[in-house]
Design a protein around this nucleic acid. Structure first.
Lengths: 227, 227
DNA sequence: TGATAGCAAACTGTTGACAGTTGACCAACG
DNA sequence: CGTTGGTCAACTGTCAACAGTTTGCTATCA
């Protein structure tokens, strides 16, 4: 194990990109909010050139750019959100299928531990909320990671998870959904333990479909979607 | 119907982006080839600033950038290609499901006409090749379009179709695959005509899976994948 | 002959200046 | 009072210059 690894090269544009992703997904800006290049560049201590490059890389994902008018944080309609969940269903269903074929015993144990931790959360026990705070404790991300498909993982991050995060910030929960979601996770894990690709995919897709229905119902009423 | 529509705003970076996509996907550059900013900017008649922005938007899709070393057209391994097909299977399967629910009679007729045109091609009749030259005569794209999911359509274009196009340029065909592909298309259409979402998804996914197997088998031997 | 050092050209990444556009505000007019 | 026109500051998009890095070539040395 050599300590001589390539010196990681980076650029101001790359660093700005990461910080913008974090700022946008952590709620520093409202959906639809206009972003000022001059302001952001000043705050990041760089010139506008690399800042523009970083914003360009976020186009279509976390920001929309209208030529000559500027850049806004994305916001989307109920219809957009439905289609986001359909993409998620397709990709996570495939990831679950792949994971069921290759997952290790150790990864299965970790998933089981994770669900037990989740079950011990007061909010979940009270049926109020089922929230996963970071990738490290996200059941879905663990399964996508276990699929060993970097492409699916990257797509879900870039095109689905970051966007969902923007909309999770003001949360409400629908009655009964929290516990149901946990049980659906448990059913996915059971299929994984059986190493049953079809079952895993079916269980995962059912879970995401239910999340979609919950999210769109929440939009019809009040608040924002959760899982 | 007013003739007064918003004047479409654009920018040099946007125009460069489109031209780069076209140049890269039409084979003007080899996979892995290094792209020179100065050269491209000169050819496009713009300064390096907007050119860099355009390249930045292509990162992770059609080009890879290594800081301080430059930008190269993507190339990928057999494993990458397999995962690309898995993503395609998931997304096109979902698109076929959605399309089966909402497709119009007129769209069905167009699909039927398209397959008949395809059947009349000499290369297909001889079992040599089944090639679709543009989006207009692409059966898959027509179905994705009929799904009315802009998000899936955009994802497939940005993350799948452009990348496949890079690899179609030097083609070979596997015996029997051309005719089988056409029959698989016909089966997809039949499920569409039945307006059967499950059937459409199953038929589409089977077709893409077979294309994946054909592509990876081709990589094991000689040449490049086709459908 | 292979390894090392030096040099210059070409390249990438960034900056700041400039031009054109936009939006906000105010005054004038009907 | 609503509309129009003018002005100005702020903004976006682009350009060219500069600094630092990389690459290729040549000369020197062991």
């Amino acid at each position: 194990m050599s300590v001589l690894n390539p010196i990681a090269g980076t650029s101001l544009a790359n660093e700005a990109f990461g910080k913008l992703v974090e700022a946008i997904t952590s709620g520093e800006f409202e959906p639809g909010e206009k972003l000022s290049e001059a302001d952001l560049a000043r705050k990041l201590g760089i010139s506008r050139g690399p800042l523009r490059e970083a914003l360009g890389r976020l186009e279509g994902r976390l920001v929309t750019r209208t030529p000559r008018l500027g850049v806004r944080v994305i916001q989307f309609s109920k219809d957009d959100l439905e289609h986001l969940f359909l993409v998620r269903e397709a990709l996570e269903g495939m990831a679950a299928r792949l994971a069921a074929e290759v997952i290790t015993d150790s990864e299965l144990r970790s998933l089981g531990d994770l669900l037990r931790q989740h079950a011990n959360r007061p909010a979940l026990a009270a049926g109020q909320a089922y929230r996963q705070h970071s990738h490290d404790d996200d059941f879905h991300f663990a399964i996508v990671h276990a699929s060993r498909s970097e492409r699916i993982e990257r797509l879900l991050l870039d095109e689905v998870y970051y966007q969902l995060r923007i909309h999770r910030l003001r949360s409400s929960t629908r009655p009964g959904r929290a516990k149901a979601a946990w049980h659906e996770h448990a059913a996915i894990l059971a299929a994984m333990e059986q190493r049953d690709p079809d079952g895993a995919e079916i269980a995962m897709r059912r879970h995401i479909r239910n999340a979609r229905l919950s999210a769109t119902a929440a939009l019809d009423g009040e608040g924002r979607p959760n899982q």
